[in-house]
Design a binder for these strands. Structure first.
Length: 680
RNA sequence: GGGCCCGUAGCUCAGCGGUUAGAGCAGGGGACUCAUAAUCCCUGGGUCGCAGGUUCGAAUCCUGCCGGGCCUACCA
């Protein structure tokens, strides 16, 4: 087997937030892959960095009254600590705000210029005169020009799905300062990526650089039409690298972020006396990117295009994974399932999560579900019950004697395990960790059955069976060690403990094929505690509390100012007269049904007392089920102009708070209120 | 609106054109007691979302429908 050389990367975490268990899917997946490759004797380096540039960082630093550099340094420290807590080992963890990255950006830029792909164009963008910055679409909120829903983002309406430009919003507001943004024209630089269309068509569709579903997606969605030019510059103020030949403008964060992969590799090369070109400009070197499906576009179109033009290695493979759900649902801050890495570590062993993710990860883009009951049960049944138990039930008997001088007859179990090892390795290589874990557990099952059949606890009672006892334990411990080698990429600590128990560190895959004999066995020590559902729930509980504490104090309740930043207070007063024009009434939901064709709507029939009813189409399907609403009292606007919608006419609206999506909270009157009563 | 993915036992999933559809866990019965109430043996359970089509043969390929998730680029 010739040693391969590979650069392996995980996506660069953004320096605007902490690492959570969703992020960890990727970092653990990548860590397992790199550890596996190293164990197999290949030269693989795990490269990552903090992604530090962009408007969001600039604004946050401003808000916290410190420099961007301070902010990103702190965040990097936190990230590195979180990763280390999960045994995620990077060969180099850099930052996109590094000298190496600046130089490399310059190199890419020059190549793009020389290829004639860069041109200047004037664009109109909203500008916040108070914060003195241009506003990305998501920093602008206003009323949808089509359906008049308030509080919509600058690019599209969550309520009716309309898309538009931020300039078309009614009463737009900056979510940063609350000021009314004004359209301003500014010059930007664009890259004509369409000129590389043929190259990208080829690269994405050939040689399995991408999973088939991803290749299809790109083909059907982007490559079937001209590729739009990519806006890669941002006018000052912006936190990033200023473009040397275009003063006052900065590279857009997505331009310099992937270049950070190279910059971080370069740092590693400098520290180890390696030749950078050897790692990034050499057809023998494999480049593997692990990313989430949300950033597919950047890594499969822009990024190969940039590498191609600048003359660096193209990715050998982009491994794309899905998102984490918890209990079948999106992670939610209010439910406490949005768990930070540091919170997890306070309650549970990192090995649990590494193993659990491994049992769920495949080469596909599918989402991965963390089911709390299954999590506990899997970890306990597989790791504690089957694997660690093997050592636990044999090591004690072998402590006094050590292992037998020659490897005993074992009914071919060890040899079968060696053979299984090739299947396990293939599964790891393909990213089918779930399959690898299943194959390993088969071995553990067989090993436990072996111990059961030899009954070492009976042998121990009979002095004349000492040799049989030693032989049985020698087999049991060697089978255990074989498993520990196969699990080493997932469970590095277990591999270490196994090395200590049997006196030989685990460093090579090949060790699984070389039984240990005649060596001492150390005193057995617990390797892994059992997990409990209570711990998992305690973790969720703390995650809930953490959410409300993150914000600035207001009175004794410490409510977050996040909602206000999302939807700033309306500056203009309304007169009492204006207020009374809105006829708000208590109403009872007398019927509720699903509007099948719609993603969001429920059809509610409201009774306002007596025979007075209103049919209302409410966008609350994602949160409320029809049956739970029937009979409930709500507040409705009774004199709202009826509105024709695709599924019928809506004759009013029910009042609710929250930004939308899963966060919708219906207003309900206190007990005693009667349908038809007016709200004053 | 367009697109991508998924829908197989209670749960998580494997199988993706060829013998009576599999695994782990959960459930039921038994054994054992060395081990972190761990382990071992036996066992019940599925019209492979629905409807058509292609084929000697379909969970597996094609079409449509239903249900779920996600994406929809100058957003990070």
């Amino acid at each position: 087997m010739t040693a391969r050389r590979m650069v392996v990367t995980a996506a660069l975490p953004y320096a605007n937030g902490h690492i959570h268990i969703g992020h960890l899917v990727e970092y653990i997946q990548t860590d397992i892959w790199v550890r596996f490759q190293k164990l197999r004797g290949h030269r693989a380096i795990y490269i990552c960095a903090d992604d530090t540039h962009g408007t969001a960082i600039m604004l946050r630093a401003r808000q916290e009254g410190r420099s961007e550099e301070e902010l990103i340094a702190d965040m990097q420290q936190a990230h590195v600590r979180d990763f280390a807590g999960f045994d995620i080992h990077f060969d180099n963890y850099g930052s996109t705000h590094s000298q190496e990255n600046r130089e490399l950006c310059q190199r890419f830029w020059q190549a793009l210029r020389e290829a004639g792909l860069v041109y200047e164009k004037e664009v109109e963008q909203l500008y916040d005169p108070q914060a003195q910055t241009f506003l990305a679409d998501r920093f602008v909120r206003g009323t949808c020009p089509r359906c008049k829903a308030p509080g919509q983002y600058g690019d599209s309406c969550e309520s009716c799905g309309a898309t538009y430009s931020p300039a078309e919003l009614i009463d737009p507001q900056s979510t940063i300062s609350g000021a009314r943004p004004e359209p301003r024209r500014a010059k930007h630089l664009f890259i004509q990526i369409e000129k590389l269309h043929d190259f990208l068509e080829q690269w994405t569709q050939q040689d399995e650089h991408l999973q088939p579903e991803v290749a299809n997606y790109l083909k059907g969605h982007f490559l079937n039409q001209p590729l739009r030019d990519w806006d890669v510059s941002r006018p000052a103020p912006y936190f990033g690298f200023e473009i040397p030949d275009y003063p006052g403008h900065y590279w857009y964060v997505w331009f310099d972020a992937p270049i950070g992969y190279l910059a971080s590799t370069w740092q590693w090369c400098k520290r180890h006396g390696e030749d950078f070109d050897h790692w990034w400009r050499n057809p023998e070197t494999e480049i593997h990117h692990f990313i989430g499906k949300d950033i597919t576009y950047f890594h499969t179109l822009f990024w190969p295009a940039m590498l191609h033009v600048a003359g660096f290695n193209l990715p050998t493979k982009v491994h794309i994974h899905g998102f984490l759900t918890v209990g079948g649902e999106k992670m939610s801050k209010s439910k406490g399932t949005f768990v930070m890495a540091s919170t997890y570590l306070k309650h549970l062993d990192p090995a649990y999560l590494r193993y659990y993710y491994a049992t769920k990860l495949t080469h596909k883009v599918d989402d991965l579900d963390l089911n709390p009951e299954e999590f506990v049960q899997r970890v306990n049944a597989d790791l504690v019950g089957k694997v660690v138990n093997l050592a636990s039930r044999t090591a004690r008997f072998a402590h006094a004697t050590g292992l037998s001088p020659t490897y005993p007859e074992d009914q071919g179990l060890f040899a079968a395990g060696v053979e299984q090892g090739e299947r396990i390795a293939a599964a790891y290589e393909q990213g089918n960790y779930n399959q690898a874990m299943r194959l390993v557990m088969e071995l553990a099952d067989r090993a436990n059955a072996y111990v059961e059949s030899r009954q070492p606890w009976q042998l121990a009672k009979q002095p004349d069976k000492a040799q049989q006892l030693q032989d049985t334990c020698t087999v049991g411990l060697n089978l255990f060690r074989q498993i520990a080698v196969y699990l080493a990429p997932v469970l590095p600590r277990l591999a270490e403990q196994t090395g200590e128990l049997l006196g030989e560190p685990i460093t090579r895959w090949q060790q699984a094929a070389e039984p240990l004999t005649g060596t001492p066995v150390a005193r057995f020590r617990h390797m892994l505690k059992r997990a409990s559902l209570e711990q998992v729930h305690a973790m969720f509980e703390e995650s809930k509390q953490a959410e409300s504490e993150t914000s600035s104090p207001a009175g004794g309740f410490q409510d977050s100012d996040e909602p206000l930043r999302q939807e700033p207070l309306v500056a203009e007063h309304c007169t009492f007269e204006q207020f009374t024009k809105i006829d708000l009434r208590v109403a009872r939901v007398v019927a509720a049904e699903d509007v099948k064709e719609s993603k969001k709507l429920l059809r509610l029939t409201l009774n306002l007392g007596g025979q007075e009813t209103r049919q209302v189409l409410a966008g609350i399907k994602g949160v409320y089920r029809p049956e739970e609403l029937v009979g409930q009292l709500v507040i409705c606007c009774a004199n709202l102009q009826p509105r024709k919608m695709r599924f019928g006419t809506s004759e009013g609206m029910v009042l609710a708070a929250g930004p939308g999506g899963k966060e919708i909270y219906l207003l309900r009157p206190d007990s005693g209120a009667k349908p038809g009563q007016r709200v004053h």
